[in-house]
Amino acid sequence: MIGNKKEPVEGKISTASMPDIIFMLLIFFMVSTVFREFRGLPVRIPSAVSSERIDGKRNIAHCYVDVNDRISIDDKLMTPREVTSIMYLKRMANPRIIVSMKIDENCKYEIVDRVHKALQEADARRIVYATLTKE
């Protein structure tokens, strides 16, 4: 014997479990995806230092107010009175609702106050002033 010649080992990765892994990822994304249902209005939101991250996408209702004092919820323009009724329904459906106020930074406080009053009447009092982060 002159020495054993080693036979080259053929390396193979089993791809049998690949679909399982992909399935797992798929299910994760399917569960965590919340579709964006509406586009809102073009607004420039103000920035603040103390802005914090708001968790729980499913509990957030978006309310847009632009410079021309138009109020939009779910892509429908509405009056403050309509805001009260729609927010009341939303709060009934989900008591943990948080209203994210996307208000243009150049809006007058008058319209902000009107939205406040509408939300107070609907008893949807947990709100977030959407801001960008400064510094």
Partner: peptide, 29 residues
């Protein structure tokens, strides 16, 4: 695997990363 990959890519693309930031406030009654 191909089919699930396709679905996976679809959900990956449509998922929006949470960018909701703001100042929390509770309105008075």
């Amino acid at each position: 695997a191909d089919i699930t990959f396709l679905l996976l890519v679809f959900f990956l693309v449509t998922t929006t990363v949470s960018t909701d930031r703001g100042i929390l406030f509770v309105l008075p009654p």
